[in-house]
Design a protein around this nucleic acid. Structure first.
Length: 560
RNA sequence: GUCCCUGUAGCUCAGCCUGGAUAGAGCAACGGACUUCUAAUCCGUAGGCCGGGGGUUCGAAUCCCUCCAGGGACGCCA
Protein backbone atom coordinates (compact mmCIF):
# COMPACT_ATOMS: atom_id res chain seq x y z
CA UNK A 1 0.00 0.00 0.00
CA UNK A 2 1.59 3.20 -1.19
CA UNK A 3 -0.59 6.16 -0.31
CA UNK A 4 1.51 8.86 -1.92
CA UNK A 5 1.63 7.02 -5.20
CA UNK A 6 -2.11 6.51 -5.06
CA UNK A 7 -2.61 10.22 -4.59
CA UNK A 8 -0.27 11.05 -7.44
CA UNK A 9 -2.01 8.67 -9.76
CA UNK A 10 -5.40 10.00 -8.75
CA UNK A 11 -4.31 13.54 -9.54
CA UNK A 12 -2.81 12.43 -12.82
CA UNK A 13 -6.09 10.88 -13.93
CA UNK A 14 -7.91 13.99 -12.76
CA UNK A 15 -5.70 16.21 -14.90
CA UNK A 16 -5.92 13.89 -17.89
CA UNK A 17 -9.69 13.96 -17.71
CA UNK A 18 -9.70 17.75 -17.62
CA UNK A 19 -7.32 17.85 -20.58
CA UNK A 20 -9.51 15.59 -22.66
CA UNK A 21 -12.55 17.63 -21.76
CA UNK A 22 -10.87 20.91 -22.67
CA UNK A 23 -9.91 19.53 -26.05
CA UNK A 24 -13.40 18.24 -26.67
CA UNK A 25 -14.80 21.65 -25.92
CA UNK A 26 -12.30 23.18 -28.32
CA UNK A 27 -10.59 25.24 -25.64
CA UNK A 28 -7.30 23.50 -26.12
CA UNK A 29 -5.69 21.76 -29.05
CA UNK A 30 -2.95 19.18 -28.79
CA UNK A 31 -1.92 15.96 -30.49
CA UNK A 32 -0.97 13.92 -27.48
CA UNK A 33 -0.51 14.43 -23.80
CA UNK A 34 3.19 14.89 -23.06
CA UNK A 35 4.63 12.81 -20.23
CA UNK A 36 4.13 15.26 -17.42
CA UNK A 37 4.90 14.86 -13.74
CA UNK A 38 2.88 15.11 -10.58
CA UNK A 39 5.56 16.10 -8.12
CA UNK A 40 5.97 17.33 -4.62
CA UNK A 41 7.00 20.98 -4.74
CA UNK A 42 10.03 21.97 -2.79
CA UNK A 43 8.19 24.90 -1.29
CA UNK A 44 5.31 24.07 0.95
CA UNK A 45 3.46 27.21 -0.13
CA UNK A 46 3.24 25.69 -3.59
CA UNK A 47 0.87 23.06 -2.39
CA UNK A 48 1.00 19.35 -1.67
CA UNK A 49 1.51 18.33 -5.26
CA UNK A 50 2.21 20.24 -8.45
CA UNK A 51 1.82 19.51 -12.12
CA UNK A 52 3.90 20.85 -15.01
CA UNK A 53 1.72 19.73 -17.91
CA UNK A 54 0.73 23.24 -19.00
CA UNK A 55 4.32 24.24 -19.66
CA UNK A 56 4.99 21.08 -21.59
CA UNK A 57 1.91 21.69 -23.73
CA UNK A 58 2.77 25.30 -24.56
CA UNK A 59 4.37 24.59 -27.90
CA UNK A 60 1.82 22.05 -29.12
CA UNK A 61 -1.12 24.17 -28.07
CA UNK A 62 0.56 27.41 -29.15
CA UNK A 63 -0.62 29.14 -26.06
CA UNK A 64 1.01 30.65 -22.98
CA UNK A 65 1.51 28.05 -20.23
CA UNK A 66 -0.41 30.07 -17.65
CA UNK A 67 -3.41 30.28 -19.96
CA UNK A 68 -3.31 26.55 -20.59
CA UNK A 69 -3.09 25.94 -16.88
CA UNK A 70 -6.15 28.07 -16.28
CA UNK A 71 -8.08 26.19 -18.93
CA UNK A 72 -7.15 22.89 -17.35
CA UNK A 73 -8.13 24.10 -13.91
CA UNK A 74 -11.48 25.34 -15.15
CA UNK A 75 -12.12 21.86 -16.52
CA UNK A 76 -11.24 20.03 -13.33
CA UNK A 77 -14.06 18.33 -11.55
CA UNK A 78 -14.11 20.36 -8.36
CA UNK A 79 -16.24 17.90 -6.48
CA UNK A 80 -13.26 15.81 -5.50
CA UNK A 81 -13.48 15.45 -1.76
CA UNK A 82 -9.76 15.38 -1.21
CA UNK A 83 -9.02 18.69 -2.85
CA UNK A 84 -9.00 21.86 -0.83
CA UNK A 85 -7.81 24.14 -3.57
CA UNK A 86 -6.09 24.40 -6.92
CA UNK A 87 -4.05 27.34 -8.15
CA UNK A 88 -2.04 28.35 -11.16
CA UNK A 89 1.31 29.78 -10.20
CA UNK A 90 4.78 30.59 -11.40
CA UNK A 91 5.50 29.85 -15.03
CA UNK A 92 2.34 27.78 -15.35
CA UNK A 93 2.39 25.26 -12.57
CA UNK A 94 -0.86 23.82 -11.38
CA UNK A 95 -0.63 23.49 -7.62
CA UNK A 96 -2.89 21.19 -5.68
CA UNK A 97 -3.76 21.77 -2.06
CA UNK A 98 -5.18 18.69 -0.42
CA UNK A 99 -7.27 18.26 2.64
CA UNK A 100 -5.21 16.44 5.26
CA UNK A 101 -7.76 13.62 5.38
CA UNK A 102 -5.74 11.24 3.29
CA UNK A 103 -2.87 11.45 5.76
CA UNK A 104 -5.07 9.98 8.44
CA UNK A 105 -4.91 6.69 6.56
CA UNK A 106 -1.19 6.53 7.18
CA UNK A 107 -1.34 5.13 10.73
CA UNK A 108 -3.70 2.38 9.66
CA UNK A 109 -1.55 1.44 6.67
CA UNK A 110 1.61 1.28 8.75
CA UNK A 111 -0.19 -0.67 11.44
CA UNK A 112 -1.54 -3.25 9.07
CA UNK A 113 1.86 -3.69 7.46
CA UNK A 114 3.37 -4.73 10.78
CA UNK A 115 7.07 -5.31 10.32
CA UNK A 116 6.72 -4.95 6.57
CA UNK A 117 5.89 -1.32 6.03
CA UNK A 118 7.20 -0.31 2.63
CA UNK A 119 6.87 -3.79 1.18
CA UNK A 120 5.43 -3.62 -2.32
CA UNK A 121 3.59 -6.50 -3.89
CA UNK A 122 5.71 -9.06 -5.71
CA UNK A 123 6.33 -7.93 -9.26
CA UNK A 124 7.27 -11.37 -10.52
CA UNK A 125 10.81 -10.33 -11.38
CA UNK A 126 13.71 -12.44 -10.24
CA UNK A 127 16.84 -10.46 -9.60
CA UNK A 128 20.29 -11.39 -8.45
CA UNK A 129 22.72 -9.12 -6.66
CA UNK A 130 26.32 -10.24 -6.67
CA UNK A 131 28.61 -8.26 -4.43
CA UNK A 132 31.91 -8.27 -2.55
CA UNK A 133 33.20 -11.44 -4.29
CA UNK A 134 36.67 -10.70 -2.95
CA UNK A 135 39.43 -13.12 -3.77
CA UNK A 136 39.66 -15.81 -1.12
CA UNK A 137 43.37 -15.25 -0.82
CA UNK A 138 43.29 -12.65 1.87
CA UNK A 139 41.28 -10.45 4.15
CA UNK A 140 38.44 -8.15 3.27
CA UNK A 141 39.49 -4.56 2.85
CA UNK A 142 37.69 -1.24 2.83
CA UNK A 143 36.61 -1.50 -0.78
CA UNK A 144 35.01 -4.86 -0.05
CA UNK A 145 33.37 -3.32 2.98
CA UNK A 146 31.82 -0.55 0.94
CA UNK A 147 30.71 -3.04 -1.68
CA UNK A 148 29.20 -5.17 1.06
CA UNK A 149 27.28 -2.30 2.60
CA UNK A 150 26.00 -1.06 -0.75
CA UNK A 151 25.20 -4.49 -2.16
CA UNK A 152 23.40 -5.77 0.89
CA UNK A 153 21.34 -2.60 1.32
CA UNK A 154 20.47 -2.61 -2.36
CA UNK A 155 19.35 -6.22 -2.11
CA UNK A 156 17.13 -5.28 0.84
CA UNK A 157 15.67 -2.38 -1.09
CA UNK A 158 14.95 -4.45 -4.19
CA UNK A 159 13.31 -7.07 -2.07
CA UNK A 160 10.99 -4.48 -0.53
CA UNK A 161 10.32 -3.03 -3.96
CA UNK A 162 8.79 -6.35 -4.96
CA UNK A 163 11.63 -8.26 -6.57
CA UNK A 164 12.52 -11.78 -5.69
CA UNK A 165 16.13 -11.23 -4.70
CA UNK A 166 19.08 -13.55 -4.40
CA UNK A 167 22.42 -12.51 -2.93
CA UNK A 168 25.46 -14.17 -4.31
CA UNK A 169 29.17 -14.27 -3.61
CA UNK A 170 31.42 -15.38 -6.44
CA UNK A 171 34.47 -17.16 -5.12
CA UNK A 172 37.48 -16.82 -7.38
CA UNK A 173 38.99 -20.09 -6.32
CA UNK A 174 40.70 -20.90 -9.60
CA UNK A 175 43.13 -19.36 -12.00
CA UNK A 176 46.39 -17.54 -11.88
CA UNK A 177 46.15 -15.85 -8.54
CA UNK A 178 45.22 -19.09 -6.86
CA UNK A 179 48.33 -20.71 -8.30
CA UNK A 180 50.40 -17.86 -7.00
CA UNK A 181 48.65 -18.20 -3.68
CA UNK A 182 49.56 -21.90 -3.66
CA UNK A 183 53.20 -21.16 -4.39
CA UNK A 184 53.25 -18.60 -1.59
CA UNK A 185 51.76 -21.13 0.81
CA UNK A 186 54.28 -23.72 -0.23
CA UNK A 187 57.17 -21.35 0.28
CA UNK A 188 55.97 -20.52 3.79
CA UNK A 189 55.44 -24.16 4.52
CA UNK A 190 58.97 -25.11 3.54
CA UNK A 191 60.28 -22.10 5.41
CA UNK A 192 58.46 -23.02 8.60
CA UNK A 193 59.62 -26.61 8.28
CA UNK A 194 63.18 -25.37 8.08
CA UNK A 195 63.68 -26.29 4.45
CA UNK A 196 65.01 -24.37 1.54
CA UNK A 197 62.38 -22.31 -0.11
CA UNK A 198 61.94 -19.68 -2.74
CA UNK A 199 59.26 -17.09 -2.19
CA UNK A 200 57.50 -16.35 -5.48
CA UNK A 201 57.88 -12.95 -7.00
CA UNK A 202 54.88 -10.76 -6.15
CA UNK A 203 53.61 -13.59 -3.96
CA UNK A 204 51.23 -13.22 -1.05
CA UNK A 205 53.51 -11.82 1.62
CA UNK A 206 50.91 -11.16 4.28
CA UNK A 207 51.31 -12.39 7.81
CA UNK A 208 47.94 -14.14 7.53
CA UNK A 209 49.45 -16.56 5.02
CA UNK A 210 52.14 -17.49 7.52
CA UNK A 211 49.54 -18.01 10.23
CA UNK A 212 47.47 -20.22 7.98
CA UNK A 213 50.47 -22.40 7.27
CA UNK A 214 51.31 -22.55 10.97
CA UNK A 215 47.83 -23.85 11.69
CA UNK A 216 48.17 -26.38 8.91
CA UNK A 217 51.42 -27.64 10.37
CA UNK A 218 49.91 -27.79 13.84
CA UNK A 219 47.14 -29.99 12.46
CA UNK A 220 48.94 -32.03 9.83
CA UNK A 221 52.61 -31.84 10.69
CA UNK A 222 55.43 -31.56 8.19
CA UNK A 223 54.86 -34.73 6.20
CA UNK A 224 54.26 -32.75 3.02
CA UNK A 225 57.90 -31.78 2.89
CA UNK A 226 58.65 -35.07 1.22
CA UNK A 227 55.56 -35.08 -0.96
CA UNK A 228 55.41 -34.16 -4.61
CA UNK A 229 55.28 -30.41 -5.06
CA UNK A 230 51.95 -30.63 -6.85
CA UNK A 231 50.29 -32.62 -4.10
CA UNK A 232 51.82 -30.38 -1.48
CA UNK A 233 50.49 -27.27 -3.13
CA UNK A 234 47.08 -28.82 -3.67
CA UNK A 235 46.76 -29.78 -0.03
CA UNK A 236 47.92 -26.41 1.23
CA UNK A 237 45.72 -24.50 -1.17
CA UNK A 238 42.67 -26.54 -0.31
CA UNK A 239 43.25 -26.03 3.39
CA UNK A 240 43.89 -22.31 3.04
CA UNK A 241 40.91 -21.65 0.78
CA UNK A 242 38.53 -23.43 3.07
CA UNK A 243 39.87 -21.45 5.99
CA UNK A 244 39.78 -18.14 4.14
CA UNK A 245 36.29 -18.63 2.83
CA UNK A 246 35.01 -19.53 6.25
CA UNK A 247 36.72 -16.48 7.64
CA UNK A 248 35.25 -14.19 4.99
CA UNK A 249 31.83 -15.65 5.62
CA UNK A 250 32.10 -15.06 9.34
CA UNK A 251 33.36 -11.53 8.90
CA UNK A 252 30.56 -10.63 6.54
CA UNK A 253 28.05 -12.12 8.94
CA UNK A 254 29.45 -9.86 11.62
CA UNK A 255 28.90 -7.03 9.17
CA UNK A 256 25.27 -8.09 8.90
CA UNK A 257 25.51 -9.80 5.53
CA UNK A 258 24.41 -13.29 4.67
CA UNK A 259 24.32 -14.75 1.21
CA UNK A 260 21.91 -17.12 -0.46
CA UNK A 261 24.56 -18.60 -2.71
CA UNK A 262 28.33 -18.98 -2.53
CA UNK A 263 29.32 -19.74 -6.08
CA UNK A 264 32.69 -21.31 -6.79
CA UNK A 265 34.52 -20.38 -9.95
CA UNK A 266 36.19 -23.78 -9.85
CA UNK A 267 32.82 -25.43 -10.39
CA UNK A 268 32.72 -23.87 -13.85
CA UNK A 269 36.03 -25.48 -14.68
CA UNK A 270 35.10 -28.85 -13.21
CA UNK A 271 31.68 -29.08 -14.81
CA UNK A 272 33.12 -28.35 -18.24
CA UNK A 273 30.81 -25.36 -18.56
CA UNK A 274 33.74 -23.12 -19.24
CA UNK A 275 35.12 -25.04 -22.18
CA UNK A 276 31.57 -25.52 -23.40
CA UNK A 277 30.87 -21.80 -23.55
CA UNK A 278 34.20 -21.17 -25.26
CA UNK A 279 33.25 -23.71 -27.89
CA UNK A 280 29.87 -22.07 -28.32
CA UNK A 281 31.47 -18.69 -28.84
CA UNK A 282 33.98 -20.13 -31.27
CA UNK A 283 31.16 -21.72 -33.25
CA UNK A 284 29.27 -18.47 -33.27
CA UNK A 285 32.30 -16.69 -34.66
CA UNK A 286 32.74 -14.48 -31.62
CA UNK A 287 36.35 -15.52 -31.08
CA UNK A 288 39.46 -15.26 -33.20
CA UNK A 289 42.96 -16.58 -32.85
CA UNK A 290 45.95 -14.30 -32.69
CA UNK A 291 49.50 -14.81 -31.36
CA UNK A 292 48.49 -18.27 -30.28
CA UNK A 293 45.72 -16.99 -28.01
CA UNK A 294 41.97 -16.85 -28.48
CA UNK A 295 40.40 -13.41 -28.29
CA UNK A 296 36.86 -12.33 -27.69
CA UNK A 297 35.65 -9.94 -30.34
CA UNK A 298 34.18 -7.20 -28.20
CA UNK A 299 34.85 -3.99 -30.04
CA UNK A 300 32.25 -4.43 -32.69
CA UNK A 301 31.27 -0.79 -32.84
CA UNK A 302 33.62 2.18 -32.60
CA UNK A 303 35.92 0.49 -30.13
CA UNK A 304 33.48 0.64 -27.24
CA UNK A 305 35.09 -2.32 -25.61
CA UNK A 306 38.52 -3.70 -26.22
CA UNK A 307 39.00 -7.24 -27.41
CA UNK A 308 40.10 -9.51 -24.64
CA UNK A 309 41.96 -12.78 -24.39
CA UNK A 310 39.86 -15.71 -23.23
CA UNK A 311 42.35 -18.53 -23.81
CA UNK A 312 46.02 -17.78 -23.30
CA UNK A 313 48.59 -19.10 -25.70
CA UNK A 314 49.50 -21.66 -23.06
CA UNK A 315 45.97 -23.01 -23.32
CA UNK A 316 44.66 -21.83 -19.96
CA UNK A 317 41.50 -19.75 -19.74
CA UNK A 318 41.57 -16.21 -18.37
CA UNK A 319 39.30 -14.91 -15.61
CA UNK A 320 37.25 -13.28 -18.35
CA UNK A 321 36.52 -16.70 -19.85
CA UNK A 322 35.30 -17.88 -16.47
CA UNK A 323 33.24 -14.73 -16.08
CA UNK A 324 31.51 -15.41 -19.39
CA UNK A 325 30.62 -18.92 -18.28
CA UNK A 326 29.52 -17.54 -14.92
CA UNK A 327 27.16 -15.02 -16.48
CA UNK A 328 25.73 -17.62 -18.78
CA UNK A 329 25.07 -19.69 -15.70
CA UNK A 330 23.37 -16.76 -14.00
CA UNK A 331 20.93 -16.27 -16.85
CA UNK A 332 20.35 -20.00 -17.13
CA UNK A 333 19.21 -19.89 -13.54
CA UNK A 334 16.33 -17.71 -14.67
CA UNK A 335 17.15 -14.28 -13.34
CA UNK A 336 15.37 -11.52 -15.19
CA UNK A 337 17.93 -9.06 -14.02
CA UNK A 338 21.47 -9.47 -12.77
CA UNK A 339 23.27 -6.79 -10.81
CA UNK A 340 27.00 -6.79 -10.14
CA UNK A 341 28.45 -4.41 -7.61
CA UNK A 342 31.99 -3.71 -8.75
CA UNK A 343 34.76 -1.38 -7.79
CA UNK A 344 35.40 1.38 -10.29
CA UNK A 345 38.77 -0.17 -11.08
CA UNK A 346 36.80 -2.77 -13.05
CA UNK A 347 34.97 -0.28 -15.19
CA UNK A 348 36.92 -1.27 -18.29
CA UNK A 349 35.46 -4.71 -17.85
CA UNK A 350 31.83 -3.59 -18.02
CA UNK A 351 31.52 -2.97 -21.75
CA UNK A 352 33.11 -6.27 -22.76
CA UNK A 353 31.13 -8.18 -20.15
CA UNK A 354 27.97 -6.77 -21.66
CA UNK A 355 29.25 -7.58 -25.11
CA UNK A 356 29.83 -11.13 -23.93
CA UNK A 357 26.31 -11.34 -22.52
CA UNK A 358 25.00 -10.19 -25.87
CA UNK A 359 27.17 -12.78 -27.65
CA UNK A 360 25.59 -15.43 -25.44
CA UNK A 361 22.24 -14.38 -26.80
CA UNK A 362 20.94 -12.41 -23.85
CA UNK A 363 19.84 -8.81 -23.76
CA UNK A 364 22.85 -7.00 -22.29
CA UNK A 365 20.51 -4.61 -20.48
CA UNK A 366 19.63 -7.46 -18.20
CA UNK A 367 23.10 -7.11 -16.75
CA UNK A 368 23.44 -4.03 -14.63
CA UNK A 369 26.80 -3.12 -13.19
CA UNK A 370 26.77 -0.78 -10.22
CA UNK A 371 30.19 0.79 -10.21
CA UNK A 372 31.31 2.07 -6.91
CA UNK A 373 34.18 4.49 -6.60
CA UNK A 374 37.04 3.28 -4.52
CA UNK A 375 37.70 3.95 -0.89
CA UNK A 376 40.83 5.75 0.07
CA UNK A 377 41.91 4.99 3.53
CA UNK A 378 43.56 7.47 5.82
CA UNK A 379 44.92 7.03 9.26
CA UNK A 380 45.50 10.27 11.06
CA UNK A 381 45.53 12.24 7.83
CA UNK A 382 48.02 9.94 6.15
CA UNK A 383 46.99 7.79 3.28
CA UNK A 384 47.24 4.06 3.78
CA UNK A 385 47.98 2.06 0.67
CA UNK A 386 45.79 -0.95 0.35
CA UNK A 387 47.47 -3.99 -1.02
CA UNK A 388 46.95 -7.62 -0.30
CA UNK A 389 50.25 -8.66 -1.71
CA UNK A 390 52.31 -6.53 0.61
CA UNK A 391 50.03 -7.30 3.50
CA UNK A 392 49.47 -3.67 4.44
CA UNK A 393 45.77 -3.33 4.69
CA UNK A 394 43.13 -2.44 7.16
CA UNK A 395 40.71 -5.28 7.29
CA UNK A 396 36.97 -5.23 7.61
CA UNK A 397 37.42 -6.95 10.94
CA UNK A 398 39.57 -4.13 12.22
CA UNK A 399 37.09 -1.62 10.90
CA UNK A 400 34.21 -3.23 12.73
CA UNK A 401 36.30 -3.34 15.87
CA UNK A 402 37.42 0.27 15.65
CA UNK A 403 34.38 2.06 14.36
CA UNK A 404 31.59 -0.39 15.04
CA UNK A 405 29.34 -2.18 12.62
CA UNK A 406 26.48 0.31 12.78
CA UNK A 407 28.61 3.37 12.12
CA UNK A 408 30.60 1.63 9.39
CA UNK A 409 27.55 0.39 7.52
CA UNK A 410 25.80 3.70 7.73
CA UNK A 411 28.89 5.61 6.68
CA UNK A 412 29.40 3.50 3.58
CA UNK A 413 25.88 3.98 2.28
CA UNK A 414 25.49 7.61 3.24
CA UNK A 415 27.21 8.70 0.07
CA UNK A 416 26.24 7.72 -3.42
CA UNK A 417 28.31 4.96 -5.00
CA UNK A 418 29.59 7.53 -7.48
CA UNK A 419 31.36 9.54 -4.87
CA UNK A 420 34.94 8.81 -3.99
CA UNK A 421 35.13 7.97 -0.35
CA UNK A 422 37.91 9.13 1.91
CA UNK A 423 37.77 7.16 5.10
CA UNK A 424 39.95 8.42 7.89
CA UNK A 425 39.95 5.91 10.69
CA UNK A 426 41.16 8.38 13.28
CA UNK A 427 38.49 10.82 12.27
CA UNK A 428 35.81 8.16 12.25
CA UNK A 429 36.71 7.16 15.76
CA UNK A 430 37.04 10.73 16.93
CA UNK A 431 33.73 11.74 15.49
CA UNK A 432 31.94 8.62 16.49
CA UNK A 433 29.87 10.58 18.98
CA UNK A 434 28.77 12.89 16.21
CA UNK A 435 28.29 10.24 13.59
CA UNK A 436 24.86 10.71 12.01
CA UNK A 437 24.00 7.11 12.72
CA UNK A 438 23.67 7.93 16.42
CA UNK A 439 21.31 10.75 15.61
CA UNK A 440 18.94 8.30 13.97
CA UNK A 441 19.37 5.60 16.57
CA UNK A 442 18.78 8.13 19.31
CA UNK A 443 15.46 9.06 17.76
CA UNK A 444 14.47 5.42 17.89
CA UNK A 445 15.63 5.06 21.49
CA UNK A 446 13.77 8.20 22.53
CA UNK A 447 10.52 6.91 21.10
CA UNK A 448 11.05 3.60 22.84
CA UNK A 449 11.52 5.51 26.05
CA UNK A 450 8.18 7.26 25.62
CA UNK A 451 6.48 3.98 24.87
CA UNK A 452 8.09 2.36 27.91
CA UNK A 453 6.91 5.13 30.17
CA UNK A 454 3.43 4.91 28.77
CA UNK A 455 3.39 1.22 29.45
CA UNK A 456 4.81 1.69 32.95
CA UNK A 457 1.97 4.03 33.84
CA UNK A 458 -0.56 1.61 32.50
CA UNK A 459 -1.34 3.38 29.24
CA UNK A 460 -2.21 0.96 26.46
CA UNK A 461 -1.08 1.74 22.97
CA UNK A 462 -4.25 1.39 20.98
CA UNK A 463 -4.57 0.64 17.33
CA UNK A 464 -5.45 3.47 14.91
CA UNK A 465 -9.08 2.38 14.54
CA UNK A 466 -9.60 2.77 18.29
CA UNK A 467 -8.21 6.27 18.33
CA UNK A 468 -9.18 9.54 16.73
CA UNK A 469 -6.04 10.12 14.70
CA UNK A 470 -7.53 13.35 13.44
CA UNK A 471 -6.36 14.86 16.65
CA UNK A 472 -2.97 14.97 14.94
CA UNK A 473 -3.67 18.36 13.45
CA UNK A 474 -0.52 20.39 14.11
CA UNK A 475 1.58 21.26 11.07
CA UNK A 476 4.47 19.22 12.42
CA UNK A 477 2.22 16.22 12.92
CA UNK A 478 0.84 16.41 9.42
CA UNK A 479 4.38 16.78 8.11
CA UNK A 480 5.45 13.70 10.04
CA UNK A 481 2.51 11.69 8.74
CA UNK A 482 3.44 12.84 5.30
CA UNK A 483 7.08 11.85 5.77
CA UNK A 484 6.10 8.39 6.97
CA UNK A 485 3.75 8.12 4.00
CA UNK A 486 6.69 8.85 1.69
CA UNK A 487 8.64 5.82 2.82
CA UNK A 488 7.30 3.28 0.27
CA UNK A 489 8.03 5.73 -2.53
CA UNK A 490 11.53 6.24 -1.23
CA UNK A 491 12.05 2.51 -1.46
CA UNK A 492 10.85 2.46 -5.05
CA UNK A 493 13.05 5.37 -6.04
CA UNK A 494 16.06 3.84 -4.33
CA UNK A 495 15.39 0.60 -6.20
CA UNK A 496 14.98 2.32 -9.56
CA UNK A 497 18.12 4.38 -9.21
CA UNK A 498 20.05 1.66 -7.39
CA UNK A 499 20.79 4.25 -4.75
CA UNK A 500 20.78 2.94 -1.20
CA UNK A 501 22.11 6.28 0.01
CA UNK A 502 18.61 7.66 -0.48
CA UNK A 503 17.38 5.58 2.41
CA UNK A 504 20.14 6.88 4.66
CA UNK A 505 19.16 10.42 3.82
CA UNK A 506 15.50 9.71 4.23
CA UNK A 507 15.87 8.27 7.69
CA UNK A 508 18.10 11.16 8.73
CA UNK A 509 15.37 13.56 7.68
CA UNK A 510 12.67 11.61 9.46
CA UNK A 511 14.76 11.43 12.62
CA UNK A 512 15.39 15.17 12.40
CA UNK A 513 11.68 15.92 12.11
CA UNK A 514 11.02 13.70 15.06
CA UNK A 515 13.68 15.32 17.28
CA UNK A 516 12.27 18.72 16.50
CA UNK A 517 8.75 17.57 17.29
CA UNK A 518 9.93 15.96 20.50
CA UNK A 519 11.32 19.27 21.69
CA UNK A 520 8.11 21.15 21.02
CA UNK A 521 5.33 18.78 21.90
CA UNK A 522 4.56 16.41 24.71
CA UNK A 523 3.07 13.01 24.19
CA UNK A 524 2.30 11.77 27.68
CA UNK A 525 0.66 14.14 30.12
CA UNK A 526 -1.73 15.31 27.45
CA UNK A 527 -5.41 14.61 27.65
CA UNK A 528 -6.19 10.99 26.83
CA UNK A 529 -7.42 11.31 23.25
CA UNK A 530 -4.61 13.51 22.10
CA UNK A 531 -2.10 11.40 23.96
CA UNK A 532 -3.35 8.22 22.32
CA UNK A 533 -3.18 9.79 18.89
CA UNK A 534 0.36 10.98 19.51
CA UNK A 535 1.39 7.58 20.83
CA UNK A 536 0.28 6.16 17.54
CA UNK A 537 2.26 8.77 15.68
CA UNK A 538 5.31 7.84 17.74
CA UNK A 539 4.85 4.18 17.02
CA UNK A 540 4.58 4.57 13.25
CA UNK A 541 7.66 6.79 13.21
CA UNK A 542 9.49 4.23 15.28
CA UNK A 543 8.53 1.41 12.96
CA UNK A 544 9.59 3.37 9.92
CA UNK A 545 12.95 4.32 11.41
CA UNK A 546 13.55 0.75 12.45
CA UNK A 547 12.67 -0.56 9.01
CA UNK A 548 14.93 1.97 7.30
CA UNK A 549 17.83 1.14 9.59
CA UNK A 550 17.15 -2.51 9.01
CA UNK A 551 17.53 -1.97 5.27
CA UNK A 552 20.92 -0.40 5.91
CA UNK A 553 22.02 -3.19 8.21
CA UNK A 554 22.09 -0.87 11.21
CA UNK A 555 20.61 -1.81 14.56
CA UNK A 556 17.78 0.13 16.18
CA UNK A 557 18.58 0.17 19.91
CA UNK A 558 15.75 0.66 22.40
CA UNK A 559 17.97 2.50 24.85
CA UNK A 560 21.07 4.56 24.48
C1' G B 1 46.37 9.42 -25.92
C1' U B 2 41.34 6.76 -24.99
C1' C B 3 37.58 5.71 -21.35
C1' C B 4 35.06 6.20 -16.34
C1' C B 5 34.05 9.09 -11.75
C1' U B 6 34.22 13.77 -9.31
C1' G B 7 34.08 19.45 -9.06
C1' U B 8 27.57 22.74 -5.47
C1' A B 9 28.43 27.00 1.59
C1' G B 10 34.91 26.93 5.41
C1' C B 11 34.51 21.07 5.45
C1' U B 12 31.63 16.41 4.03
C1' C B 13 27.89 15.74 0.67
C1' A B 14 22.24 15.58 -1.54
C1' G B 15 19.83 17.33 -5.88
C1' C B 16 21.64 15.78 -12.21
C1' C B 17 19.23 9.77 -15.04
C1' U B 18 13.45 12.05 -16.09
C1' G B 19 15.13 20.51 -17.02
C1' G B 20 10.72 23.96 -13.59
C1' A B 21 9.14 28.17 -8.92
C1' U B 22 13.73 31.78 -4.02
C1' A B 23 19.74 25.66 -5.03
C1' G B 24 19.19 22.01 0.18
C1' A B 25 21.22 19.08 4.49
C1' G B 26 24.93 17.77 8.18
C1' C B 27 29.50 19.28 10.45
C1' A B 28 32.39 23.49 11.82
C1' A B 29 31.36 29.04 13.44
C1' C B 30 28.31 32.46 16.29
C1' G B 31 23.91 33.40 19.82
C1' G B 32 20.20 30.95 22.74
C1' A B 33 17.11 26.46 25.31
C1' C B 34 17.94 21.22 30.32
C1' U B 35 13.07 21.36 38.01
C1' U B 36 10.22 18.50 31.51
C1' C B 37 8.49 11.68 27.71
C1' U B 38 16.64 10.77 27.31
C1' A B 39 20.42 17.89 25.86
C1' A B 40 23.77 11.74 21.70
C1' U B 41 18.46 16.81 21.41
C1' C B 42 16.25 21.51 19.94
C1' C B 43 15.71 26.94 18.30
C1' G B 44 18.01 31.02 15.83
C1' U B 45 22.08 33.66 12.90
C1' A B 46 25.58 33.67 9.22
C1' G B 47 27.55 31.37 5.02
C1' G B 48 26.73 30.14 -2.72
C1' C B 49 29.61 33.62 -10.16
C1' C B 50 26.40 25.11 -8.49
C1' G B 51 34.87 24.63 -11.66
C1' G B 52 35.26 28.27 -16.46
C1' G B 53 33.19 29.34 -21.30
C1' G B 54 29.69 28.46 -25.20
C1' G B 55 25.01 26.24 -26.91
C1' U B 56 19.72 24.13 -26.72
C1' U B 57 15.12 25.90 -24.13
C1' C B 58 9.70 29.98 -22.28
C1' G B 59 13.09 28.08 -18.29
C1' A B 60 19.74 24.88 -17.09
C1' A B 61 23.17 22.85 -10.94
C1' U B 62 20.34 19.32 -14.22
C1' C B 63 20.70 18.26 -21.36
C1' C B 64 24.78 19.10 -25.50
C1' C B 65 29.87 20.93 -26.89
C1' U B 66 34.53 22.64 -25.10
C1' C B 67 38.27 23.78 -21.66
C1' C B 68 40.45 23.42 -16.59
C1' A B 69 41.41 20.69 -11.97
C1' G B 70 41.51 16.08 -8.85
C1' G B 71 40.98 10.62 -8.71
C1' G B 72 40.79 5.91 -11.30
C1' A B 73 41.14 2.37 -15.49
C1' C B 74 43.43 1.07 -20.00
C1' G B 75 47.81 -6.50 -18.65
C1' C B 76 47.84 -13.47 -22.24
C1' C B 77 46.47 -9.90 -13.57
C1' A B 78 41.68 -10.26 -11.23
Amino acid sequence: MNLVKQMEEGLRRWVETALAQAREKGELSYQEVPSFVIEVPREKQHGDFACNVAMLLARQARMAPARIANIIVSNLDKNDALIEGVEVAGAGFINFFLRPDWLYDVPRVVWEAGENYGQELANGQKIQVEFVSANPTGDLHMGNARGGAIGDSLANILSLAGYEVEREYYINDAGNQIELFGLSLEARYLELCGREFQFPEAGYAGEDVVETVQRFIAEHGDSLVSAEAEARIRALTGYALQEKIAYIKTTLEQFGITYDVWFKESSLHQSGKLSEVIRELKDAGCLYEEDGAWWFKAGVEEGEAKDEVVIRNNGTPTYFAADIAYHQNKFERGFDQVINVWGADHHGHVARMKAAVAALGYDPDRLEVLLMQLVRLYRGGEMVRMSKRTGTLVTLNELIEEVGRDAARFFFVMRSADSHLDFDLELAKQESQENPVYYVQYAHARICSILRQAQASGIEIKSPDQVDVRRLAADEELALLRKVADFPNEILTAAETMGPHRIARYVLELAGMFHSYYNHYRVLNEEAELRDARLILMEIIRRTIKKALNILGVSAPERM
